[in-house]
Design a protein around this nucleic acid. Structure first.
Lengths: 205, 205
DNA sequence: AGTACCCGACCTTGTGGTCGGTCGGCATAT
DNA sequence: ATATGCCGACCGACCACAAGGTCGGGTACT
C-alpha cells in the first residue's frame, strides 16, 4: 500500500481528455440531447463502451464538460472583474472579442443555456447557478465604481449586470448564425452609451 | 369537384389548432428534439397517429408552429416599427413587456433559436432568415430617425439593430431562468442610454 | 358513395446503458 | 528473475426502450 500510486493515469487521462474535447464539440454542435454517446466516442477514437468506462453516464459527461469550462470561464473573468468600476464594462468587451476566437466554446454555452431551460435537463441547475454567480460578481465589481464615484450612486447594478450579460449572450447567438455580425462593435456601441449615461448625472424618465 | 368544399374544417381545424397549441407548449418546454410526438399528441387529446394525420412529419409540425408564430410576431412588430426613428427603441420596450405575459411564446423562440444553430436542424434556415428580417426591418425603421435628424447620421444602424435584438434575446433567457429579472428595467436602462448617445453628438473613442 | 377524421398494430432505427471478458502493466512474494 | 495477483483500460455483444413513421381499417358526416 503506502504510495498507492496505482493511478497510472497518463494513458487514461489522455483518452479522457480526448473524450471531453469530442463531447465539447458535439454538445456545441447539436446540444446535449442532439449529441449521442456513439458519435462522441467515435470522434474521440473510442467505442461507446470505452467512453462509458471513463464517464458512467451521459449526464456525468455533461457535468464534466461543464465543470471544465467553468474553470476556464473563471480564469477569463479574473481580468475584467479585477479592474473594478466602469472599466469592468470595457473589460467585458475584451472577453467577448477573445471569445470570438473560440467558436466551440461560445456555441457550447449559447446552445446549452437555452436547452437547459427545461427543469429536468441535467444542466439546468448548473446554468441557473451560473447566471446568479455571473450577476453577483458583476455587481460586486461594478459597485467599486460607485465607491470611486465613477458610477452614479443611484444606479441599479443588478439591472445593469443583467443587461450586460444579456447583451453578450444575445450577440453571441447572432454571431453563431452569421459570423459577419460584429460582436465587438455591438458591445462597444451600448457599452460606451452605458458608461456615458452611468457616469453622467441625468436620470432616466 | 367544382366547389371543392371538401374541407369540412370546423372539427378538423379545431383539433389541428389543439395540436398546434400543444406542440407550441412542448417545444417551448423541451425544445424540438426533447419533445416527442407522443407527448404532443397526448396533450392535444389525440393519438400519435391522429397527429400524423394532420401533420405528415415532425418537421412539418415544427414549421407550422413557426409560421403561426411568425404571423403573430409580425403583428406585434407593426406597432414599434411604425413609429420610426428613436421611438422604435421605446416601442421595443413595450413589446418586451407585452411578451412577459406570454411565457410560452418567449420560451419557444429562446429555446428554438439556440437549438436551431445546428445546420441540420429543421428550423435552422427559418431562424437564420428571421434574424436577417428582424435586423433589416429595424434598420429600416431606425433610418427614419436619421432622416428626421433624431439620430446621428454616422450611426451604424446595423450594429445598433444587432445590439437591440441581442439585448432582447439575452434578457429573455435570464427571465426564463429567473422571473425576478426585470426585462423592462434592463431594456430601459440601455435604451435610454442608447437614445441619449445616439441623439447627442459625442462620438465614441 | 365518398371523404375527412382518427385509431391500433406494427416496423425500423437509434438511444443510453449493462455485462462479461481480454489485454497489458505494475507490485509483491518467492 | 520469475511467477502470481491485481487493477485500470478497453472492447463486443447484448438489452430495453422510446423515437418517428407506415399501413389498413373503422367511423361519421354529407
Amino acid at each position: 500500500m503506502g504510495a498507492k500510486l496505482g493511478q497510472n493515469n497518463v494513458k487514461g487521462e489522455q483518452t479522457k481528455n480526448a473524450i471531453l474535447a469530442a463531447a465539447e464539440q458535439l454538445f456545441a454542435e447539436s446540444g446535449y440531447r442532439g449529441a449521442s454517446l456513439a458519435n462522441i466516442a467515435e470522434r474521440a477514437g473510442v467505442t461507446q463502451s470505452g467512453l462509458l468506462h471513463h464517464f458512467n453516464s451521459k449526464d456525468e459527461l455533461l457535468v464534466a464538460v461543464l465543470e471544465q469550462h467553468n474553470r476556464d470561464d473563471d480564469a477569463l473573468l479574473i481580468g475584467p472583474l479585477s479592474m473594478g468600476g466602469v472599466d469592468v464594462i470595457t473589460g467585458l468587451r475584451e472577453l467577448i472579442v477573445q471569445n470570438s476566437e473560440n467558436r466551440v466554446s461560445v456555441r457550447l454555452f449559447a446552445v446549452l443555456v437555452a436547452e437547459s431551460t427545461s427543469v429536468d435537463h441535467p444542466g439546468h441547475d448548473y446554468m441557473k447557478a451560473r447566471y446568479d454567480r455571473l450577476r453577483n460578481r458583476l455587481v460586486g465589481a461594478l459597485s467599486i465604481g460607485i465607491q470611486r464615484g465613477e458610477i452614479r450612486a443611484d444606479a441599479d447594478l443588478e439591472v445593469l449586470a443583467s443587461a450586460l450579460i444579456a447583451l453578450m449572450d444575445g450577440i453571441q447567438l447572432q454571431w453563431i448564425y452569421n459570423s459577419q455580425v460584429d460582436m465587438g462593435a455591438a458591445f462597444d456601441l451600448v457599452a460606451s452609451a452605458l458608461v456615458q449615461s452611468m457616469t453622467g448625472g441625468a436620470t432616466a424618465a
